[in-house]
Design a protein around this nucleic acid. Structure first.
Lengths: 186, 186
DNA sequence: GGTGATTTGTCGCTTATGCAACACATTCCG
DNA sequence: CGGAATGTGTTGCATAAGCGACAAATCACC
């Protein structure tokens, strides 16, 4: 690990930008937020924004990823097994995230958000699977991770649309079937 | 006015420091707050702190001044006459400030706080008096400003200790007598 | 009192951020 | 339509902020 420590100014600036973006998101939709707005709110120069992010979509991506990961990290990486409990927690994180963000600010960008969530989930599942099943079957694990990420995301959409059940109950109903297929436990 | 515009980084850094100081003040007393705490909270380097403030007492001074001035500015500078209304508003600003800060965080620093308030008031009164009475009697106006600042501060202490009256009623009772002496209206 | 651990200020050198100006898109409105 | 206004990215040079080390002061605990 050649961990070259990042300059604290970078961390601070990123945080200022992210926070400003989230603040502004509470007031208006994504499409109405300009880079100028963000940099003004964050009290940084516009050029500095572009030093950290490709463009505003890149910011959306990274901001959402971070928000989602904050939910996941603490609960999941602690006990790093992909068992039922972990599975439920991941699902809950996604539904939390969905309900907290999707009703405001991002009309017209559901697809982007969906993609971001799936990508994050895919990475997460892949990590967990590799840790559990070991390496040497990369292709299979990758595919499994992809399927799980799509599955979880789809389930969250379905849950949001129809279900009065708690996320936990909702997803637990499906766990046995999935489990049979992917063999949660070694 | 050779208004050399201040670097936005300076403004931002000052704000970060001030905000952090106020945040920390809500948690512990002034004497327990270190420069390190502040800079950590503000996400800036300790050396940078000293680039903006002499020491932590200097910060206290400037932070309090600012908080007080925020109360005063908007209400007072608009209609820039030193009439009864303005007088009452200033008194209310001071009592608000006193009650919001003095019960927490600053035990043992009442004197410092008192001095800061008086200095701010003195500057304010002096400005208002000069604007109203014109220049050419500097000494007298200066002295008047000093007396008013001490008077208002003393009244706020007295009000805090004894009175159940509103600040407005409390100070209005004294206005006629003061007015007689200093001729509020041209 | 003494000794080790913090905290405080200060320093030269490095680096991220600000500026101002630019060409280019996009939007808005008469 | 046309042009004014606003937003987007990019650039080279100016500057505030970070680093790490330092001596001195202060604090804490025996």
């Amino acid at each position: 690990m050649t961990q070259t420590k990042t300059d604290p100014r970078v961390i601070r600036t990123r945080k200022l930008i992210m926070d400003s973006f989230i603040t502004l998101s509470e007031g208006k939709e994504f499409k109405d937020i300009t880079v100028k707005d963000i940099t003004a709110e964050a009290m940084i120069n516009r050029a500095t924004f572009y030093h950290h992010f490709e463009d505003i979509y890149d910011l959306l991506e990274k901001a959402l990823s971070e928000v989602l990961l904050v939910n996941l990290d603490s609960d999941t990486y602690r006990n790093d097994e992909l068992n039922e409990e972990t599975f439920v927690k991941i699902f809950e994180a996604v539904t939390n995230f969905q309900t907290s963000l999707s009703n405001r600010c991002h009309r017209g960008y559901e697809d982007t958000i969906a993609r971001i969530i799936r990508e994050q989930l895919e990475v997460l599942f892949h990590k967990l699977l590799v840790k559990q099943k070991g390496i040497g079957q990369e292709g299979a694990l990758k595919t499994t991770a992809v399927m799980l990420s799509w599955g979880i995301y789809g389930a969250s959409v379905e849950w949001k649309r129809n279900s009065q059940a708690s996320p936990e109950e909702f997803i637990k109903a499906a766990v046995p079937y999935i489990e049979h297929g992917i063999h949660f436990n070694k």
